[in-house]
Simulated scan of single mutants.
Amino acid sequence: MPQTVKAVIARSKGADVELVDIVVPDPGPGEAVVAVQACGVCHTDLHYREGGITDDFPFLLGHEAAGVVESVGDGVTNVAPGDFVILNWRAVCGECRACKKGVPWYCFATHNATQKMTLEDGTELTPALGIGAFAEKTLVAAGQCTKVEQADPAAVGLLGCGVMAGFGAAVNTGAIQRGESIAVIGCGGVGDAAIAGAHVAGATTIIAVDVDDAKLETAKKFGATHTINSRTEDVVAKVKELTGGFGADVVVEAVGRPETYEQAFFARDLAGRVVLVGVPSPGATVELPLIEIFGRGGSLKSSWYGDCLPSRDFPMLVDLYRQGRFDLDAFVSERIGLGDVEAAFDKMREGAVLRSVVELEAAK
């Protein structure tokens, strides 16, 4: 039987979010219903609310989530009722040209649930990133569920988006190695996750760059060995000074602005790797001397979701967390209720939090 649950929606562009009743259908073939235990408040949710992604209102917000599978539809074999899972928004298809080439983290045909969740009057909802987890329960494609060892849902749920994006940008896309140097421009949640990933991977020079001294202090807690305030220091010159005059082996740009991307380009070593994980505005452009692109070699990469494969990376990172080697708890700034999402957006805009995390009753 379909279930009626509480959830947070964005009804129209720029309007405050609302806590309402929604209807979650029984899972169909290849689908699962998940009882959500925790869900992080991500900038992407705010982008949805502001109409910056699509205009398919109303949106069911929330996507950085963990919970327990309640029921599954026909043909589901990867998870079963009772499994503790982290939700992901890139459920690989296994059939597209990327998957067949052995690079499923680039999957071009990722799965979402076929059925729609609705308002009580039947209005169909668009789930954020195909998940919609600011809800007591949500319907997803079974491939969006990754089974992991039981752990604090508020912490490990953040692997569903921002933390995985940053960690993967350094480790998967940037391929940071033991003994290498890395600079991370932008020290929000994604940038701090890149710093943490570099620390776990054994980088020895980890440079945090931001305009906010408080964020730079926080970056040290995740493993930054040096900090640069770009309001007062020349980023390129300082990075080179800290790396023997050469530049960093890897530079992660976690802002998404032309001027910071240019800093990243010139702050890398010859044959170094630049990784763009910050989300740019649609009209942003970059102009670089072509001779510099040719003469520096190396690579300029974009990182999609940290180039992660959830079935591979989520269990590994949860294990590192459980072993005390990857401090996911440090990303959780506050634990809030479903009714507090709008206030969490305000704190996000002010830069007062890394992550506010909604906790549902099932997790308490």
Results as ranks from 00 to 15, higher is better:
9 I>E: 01
170 A>K: 02
146 T>R: 09
102 G>I: 01
108 F>M: 09
341 V>N: 15
164 M>T: 12
143 G>E: 15
107 C>R: 10
320 L>G: 07
117 M>K: 13
90 R>D: 05
87 L>C: 08
239 V>Q: 02
355 R>H: 03
115 Q>F: 04
202 G>P: 02
126 T>Y: 00
177 Q>K: 05
241 E>V: 15
63 H>S: 10
363 A>K: 06
251 V>Q: 13
211 V>P: 13
346 D>R: 11
143 G>D: 15
236 V>P: 12
324 G>T: 14
268 R>I: 11
350 E>I: 04
364 K>N: 12
298 G>V: 04
307 D>P: 00
94 G>F: 14
106 Y>K: 12
316 M>I: 05
123 T>C: 06
9 I>G: 09
161 C>P: 01
84 F>Q: 02
14 G>V: 00
54 T>V: 02
296 R>D: 02
313 D>G: 08
143 G>S: 11
47 H>F: 06
179 G>I: 13
171 V>S: 02
189 G>V: 03
77 T>N: 09
222 F>C: 09
268 R>P: 05
157 G>L: 11
216 L>G: 04
19 L>G: 05
137 K>F: 03
271 A>I: 02
36 V>P: 11
131 I>N: 00
278 G>M: 10
315 P>C: 09
75 G>V: 05
325 R>S: 07
86 I>G: 01
114 T>S: 13
167 F>M: 10
326 F>D: 02
182 I>K: 06
134 F>R: 07
58 P>Y: 08
347 K>H: 04
112 N>T: 12
220 K>F: 00
67 G>A: 14
69 V>I: 09
57 F>S: 13
311 S>C: 13
136 E>L: 08
66 A>Y: 10
127 P>S: 02
224 A>Y: 14
149 E>G: 12
250 V>Q: 14
138 T>C: 09
236 V>D: 15
139 L>C: 11
34 V>I: 11
291 I>G: 14
238 K>N: 07
77 T>R: 07
327 D>Y: 01
